[in-house]
């Protein structure tokens, strides 16, 4: 078993041994439950979860930083980073392992929302289309993966979990606002740049059932960039 898989496994299981893991699961289930009940489950409405998935970019905002904040910050605070960094494991394997563990936990957080799909499936006539739902869940994993990569970087930069949470949260809020709102005071080239990294636009495409290669590559490459920066931040700890 590779070192990254070992670290990912430990990380994934640790979320279920800590209160923060269960709070995240409950928080996300509650938030998505409200959106589903108020927005999707409408008598006489069209059986679609498009709005539910389109709102996911915002719903994940408080959840993903809560998952990623402890990845490195807690290891640095408690001193376990020293044991980990002196094990026969490269820093890149450590970053990848921790990220994959957090991503696996995010998938576990999404599992309870399948109850909403089952409910819609049971009560709607005609039944909802399967394609957009699968694409919607794919978008949640890709989006969550990008958010977690940002959070992994923030956690590698500090030994304070609260600070890691806030750095991630406000960065993502700024990114969503800048890329999803028309800002008249910024020059055209900046507006085009913000549009190019727009997250809501891409999630909306997925919610329609359109799995675009460009959008998929955007999320994966974005996550890879932030993970590379997290690796750099971890390496830089040795030189500080």
């Amino acid at each position: 078993m590779s070192a990254s898989a070992v670290i990912a496994g430990r990380e994934f299981r640790s979320f279920f041994r800590l209160p923060v893991g269960w709070v995240v699961i409950a928080l996300y289930a509650a938030l998505t439950g409200v959106v589903f009940a108020a927005g999707t489950l409408q008598p006489g409405g069209v059986a679609t979860m498009r709005d539910f998935f389109a709102l996911s970019a915002w719903l994940m905002l408080p959840v993903t930083p809560a998952i990623s904040m402890r990845l490195f910050a807690e290891e640095a605070r408690s001193g376990t980073l020293e044991s980990l960094a002196t094990s026969p494991v490269s820093d890149a394997q450590v970053v990848l392992g921790k990220y994959l563990g957090a991503l696996a936990f995010l998938v576990a957080v999404l599992v309870p929302t399948l109850a909403f799909v089952a409910t819609l499936w049971a009560v709607a006539d005609p039944r909802p289309e399967v394609g957009p739902i699968v694409a919607g869940y794919l978008s949640l994993v890709l989006l969550g993966g990008l958010y977690l990569a940002v959070g992994t970087l923030a956690s590698a930069l500090t030994s304070n979990q609260t600070l890691a949470f806030l750095l991630t949260f406000f960065f993502l809020v700024a990114l969503l606002l800048a890329s999803g709102t028309r800002l008249d005071f910024v020059p055209d080239w900046a507006q085009r740049a913000f549009y190019a990294v727009s997250i809501q636009r891409r999630v909306a495409e997925f919610a329609k059932g359109i799995v675009g290669l460009g959008d998929t590559v955007f999320f994966i490459s974005g996550a890879a960039c932030f993970l590379a920066l997290a690796w750099g931040a971890l390496e830089s700890r040795r030189w500080r």
């Binding site: 041994r17 408690s78 376990t80 020293e82 044991s83 002196t86 094990s87 026969p88």
Partner: peptide
């Protein structure tokens, strides 16, 4: 990595994962 594979290290205050 090879050097670390041949090393056993107990850091000061023995930091461990309390939830395990």
């Amino acid at each position: 990595l090879e050097a670390r594979r041949h090393l056993g290290y107990l850091p000061e205050a023995a930091p461990l994962y309390p939830e395990m």
